[in-house]
Nucleic acid binder design. Structure first.
Length: 571
RNA sequence: GCGCCCGUAGCUCAGCUGGAUAGAGUGUUUGACUACGAAUCAAAAGGUCGUGAGUUCGAAUCUCGCCGGGCGCGCCA
């Protein structure tokens, strides 16, 4: 039972004592839900608004608050105070400190809400023959972070990189390669060389439209398993994946599977036959579609006029395969909001196919990335590649380290953690639905609410703990009376709320909630640090303050880890 | 034209399932390193919560209209 539940139970008891036998009073659950955190800490740790009781009790809210106050009989847990229509509670600060700090250990954050249920996660999903750029960062980091958060809460996750490795574009690529490319060109130039070939193809196709047919023919050869076409295709794929792997390694992102679109090439017949069996497939303008007019949506295209499959067909095949293979209870598609309609259609079709797991399909959508106010464009060069961004962020971090911590060992590694932490923090600090307009100055800012800010607070904790260790002041029995001041209590409240935040972040698929909470803890601790001398005082007091510092370090480290940011011990 | 999303301080954003005086960061101005780490902290200034109505004891939050912006709307993915 946490402190909130306990307060709720005690309010219930006071209500029973003050107004025995009255109908229509809120149940325990409702009391707990009504409990709120006052806007100002001076008002209390929790507040219970009495307005809703006015009706059933036929009394004014302030009168009710007074009556409940009179019936309040648990001063050892919290003292109460009636202010207007509110009943405000102040925890016994010493006990609160002891309880909060006792709960924080290596397992803090772990829970078994998921009970081992499988969550399939589709994220990152990069395209073959394209370089990793800032437009891929949101899906990649959202997926990575949600994976860690869900695992922490007891879910089993399967991370899938649903590669964009299918479509006529790859026929065009091969066509371009055969005409103007060489093996050496790709081997040395990598993905950039492939992109250059693709751009050239489009340019030349404007003059020479027969190229388009040639491209389609090459794609047909890939589909039919022609050895030459397939060899080039898989080679391009390998080169792209190797290039992307460098970025994934820098970010620490991993996947359990790389089953992309091409993987489902031989699994499309089942989609068509099942849809036909279930009577969902109808002809429309020569194409085969699932009609969704009754659901207020445009039809979902399954087969083109020429009988070829489409994006939606492949996504249905993927969903069927994932259901069979992983027996998921939830499947998350971490894809930009551009595709809102596509997923609404897709989920509706799955629902119409009457698969019980269809209700577990979730589109975790997020905002679009632009660069200095304009849409990203590879062709016009209006783009920021991720490795350029990461390299510049790391360089900047290294420069700051050289200025501020010239004696730091392994500074390259720390610069890497800090620079990348700054970039990752930026994508996971706002609600995911927000569009991001990328600006270099903002991305390379390490002051204020940033990744380095939180990392710095963590490193500061580590530094203090090293000093406490050296001085031998860490071991004594903590006297929690030393943590009754406002600043320490602010820190403790935030630490106590971490679990709640974690659950909500998982519920809403919103890692930014963790990022922000961790930032608030760092802010509160920094303030505490300036107001109090941690390593000075009576042994019991020092032990308590050191214990608080330990807890902050642990929660910061864990919170940062959950959003994919490393926490160096020195920086 | 229709559908979905967004609109809070100069800028970037929080605001918990309707609750107390709307909060951070950044930028601007100013103060604090012979101090357990100044990538820090403190202070000032900065708001008709796009707009108009409605519901409610109470609305940034819920409903509707309007304005502004983004995205999408049959054979691309």
């Amino acid at each position: 039972m946490d402190s909130k539940e306990r307060i709720a139970a005690l309010i219930g008891r006071a209500m029973e004592a003050a107004y025995p036998g009255v109908e229509g009073l809120p149940a325990l659950r409702e009391i707990e839900a009504a409990l709120e955190i006052p806007p100002d800490n001076k008002l209390g740790d929790y507040a219970f608004p009495c307005f809703r009781l006015a009706k059933p009790l036929r009394k004014a809210p302030p009168v009710i608050a007074q009556a409940l106050l009179a019936a309040w009989d648990a001063p050892e847990t919290a003292t109460a105070e009636a202010v207007g229509g509110y009943l405000n509670f102040f925890f016994n600060r010493k006990n609160f400190a002891g309880e909060v700090l006792a709960a924080i250990g290596p397992d803090y954050g772990h829970a078994d809400i998921g009970r081992g249920e499988v969550v399939v996660m589709d994220y990152s999903s990069i395209n073959i023959a394209k370089r990793f750029h800032i437009g891929h960062l949101s899906t990649t980091m959202l997926g990575h972070s949600l994976k860690r958060i869900l695992e922490m809460l007891g879910y089993k996750t399967v991370g899938i990189n649903h590669l964009g490795d299918w479509g006529t574009q790859f026929g065009k690529m091969i066509c371009a390669y055969k005409r103007w490319g060489t093996r050496e060109m790709i081997e040395t130039g990598g993905v950039d060389a492939m992109t250059a070939l693709y751009v050239r193809f489009h340019k030349e196709a404007e003059e020479n439209p027969t190229l388009e047919d040639e491209g389609r023919a090459w794609f047909k050869r890939i589909e039919d398993g022609d050895p030459e076409a397939l060899e080039i295709f898989t080679w391009f794929k390998d080169v792209t994946l190797k290039d992307a792997q460098r970025v994934y390694d820098m970010l620490g992102v991993t996947f359990d599977a790389y089953t992309g679109e091409s993987f489902y090439n031989d699994k499309m017949d089942r989609v068509v036959s099942e849809l036909t069996e279930k009577g969902l497939l109808v002809e429309s303008d020569g194409a085969m579609v699932v009609d969704l007019e009754a659901d207020g949506m445009p039809p979902c295209l399954i087969l083109k006029r020429d009988g070829a499959t489409l994006y939606a067909t492949r996504d249905i095949a993927a969903a069927l395969y994932r259901a069979d293979t992983y027996h998921f209870s939830k499947a998350l598609y971490i894809v930009a909001y551009q595709q809102d309609l596509h997923f609404r259609q897709l989920f509706k079709v799955m629902e119409k196919m009457e698969y019980p797991w269809a209700k577990g399909l979730v589109h975790v959508s997020f905002g679009m990335v632009s660069f200095e106010g304009q849409a990203l464009s590879t062709r016009e060069g209006h783009i920021v590649y991720l490795d350029d961004l990461l390299i510049r962020a790391v360089e900047k971090a290294l420069k700051i380290i050289e200025e501020k911590s010239p004696d730091l060992p392994n500074r390259e590694e720390v610069a890497r953690q800090v620079g990348i932490g700054a970039v990752v923090y930026t994508v996971l600090s706002n609600n995911r639905i927000k569009d991001i307009d990328f600006r270099w100055d903002r991305a390379l800012n390490f002051d204020g609410e940033t990744g380095p800010y939180v990392q710095y607070a963590h490193a500061r904790c580590c530094s203090l703990l090293r000093k406490a260790e050296d001085a031998g002041t860490a071991g004594g029995t903590p006297d929690y009376a030393a943590l009754c001041d406002d600043e320490a209590q602010d820190v403790l409240r935030l630490l106590a709320r971490f679990l709640e935040v974690l659950r909500e972040a998982a519920d809403k698929y919103e890692p930014s909630m963790v990022t922000r909470h961790v930032t608030r803890i760092a802010q509160a601790y920094n303030k505490y640090y300036y107001e109090h001398r941690i390593l000075e005082g009576e042994p019991g007091e020092v032990a308590a303050k050191v214990r608080l510092t330990q807890a902050v370090r642990d929660v910061l480290r864990e919170g940062l880890w959950l959003v994919g940011i490393d926490a160096p011990e020195r920086m």
